[in-house]
Write a protein that binds this DNA or RNA. Structure first.
Lengths: 166, 166
DNA sequence: AGGAGATAGTTCAAGCCTAAAATGTTTATG
DNA sequence: CATAAACATTTTAGGCTTGAACTATCTCCT
């Protein structure tokens, strides 16, 4: 947390440098988290009140809506970037509610494909329209140019993969 | 999801307009989520491996580290923007581990102040240094100017409060 | 063919998270 | 003073999330 000694020091890979950039990045991260949590919270609330559903369920349905023939469990978990076991639970509940079906995969009895039912597709179409409007409203403080620019910058953050770990 | 009819239509408050801005905002939101989840995941992993702790615990400790005399449960839940009941559970566990203490508030037997123990302060100091370095590393694709600029833009998103709900 | 190892998915334990109900305490009001 | 309303916190029920252990199946190599 100190600001001294930043001048002629070797820059260790994983050590805080406390430069202006370092501080600006920390502030950015906190704000990033805050903004994301804010929007997420509003979406969650809207989904709950309007459609009696949750964000994770919406995410699963969105992924499957895009992938017409369905996805295997592992593909789903990879697209959504959540753990395998997590997907199992969410899909279980969506199947119970008649929104998804599990379909055996030919030639591989380990795998399952998951697909939206007709009812599921219809429900999602409704939700997607509202969802888009909610986002538009929540992000109305950002115009098209800024949005494009921020998207590119965020890409640079998200792209940094798990390489240089410690 | 259609692109037609955006021309001479009254703009309803909650209806998707499907303008260029609307699409750019949706893309921004998806990227925002992706970047945040990415950084969060790395932090979680680092905290787990290096300090055998979790992000929510870190957040609680960070809030209390900043607030020297401690915070009341409700203040904590408001600062962290998580539910009251949630804070109860996390604090319970931190108290068991000797990192926090609950202190009765004079003149109000309903309230409790929560404060870091000496051990808690020491542990957090260690974690904070690493945390700052991790963030610096994860966001290295963004320079100081960009960071400052993005922070301001995100402020505009996070600031939008719960007013015009539906 | 017969394993060794990889892969797909589920189960499990533990913790996080929320909304809503419940408990105990304080404050305001008649 | 009594008691209704407000407040601080905890409890509860249900769902999300992870990492790790486990089961079943497939692939590859000899």
């Amino acid at each position: 947390m100190s600001e001294i000694g930043a001048g002629h020091r070797v820059e260790a890979e994983t050590e805080a440098r406390d430069t202006a950039a370092s501080k600006a990045r920390l502030r950015l991260w906190l704000k990033l988290l805050k903004a994301t949590k804010h929007v997420e919270g509003e979406l969650r609330e809207n989904l709950r009140v309007t459609f009696d559903t949750t964000l994770p369920r919406f995410d699963v349905m969105a992924a499957l809506y895009r992938a017409e023939p369905g996805l295997k469990m592992s593909e789903l978990s990879s697209v959504l970037r959540v753990s395998n076991g997590n997907v199992t639970g969410i899909v279980d509940r969506l199947v119970i509610d008649g929104i998804l079906v599990r379909i055996p995969v030919d030639n591989d009895r380990r795998a399952t494909t998951v697909r939206l039912t007709k009812a599921g597709r219809e429900q999602f179409a409704q939700m997607a329209a509202k969802h888009e409007a909610w986002i538009d409203n929540l992000l109305e403080g950002v115009d098209a140019n800024e949005a494009q620019q921020m998207t590119d910058q965020l890409e640079r953050i998200a792209r940094k993969n798990t390489k240089k770990g410690a």
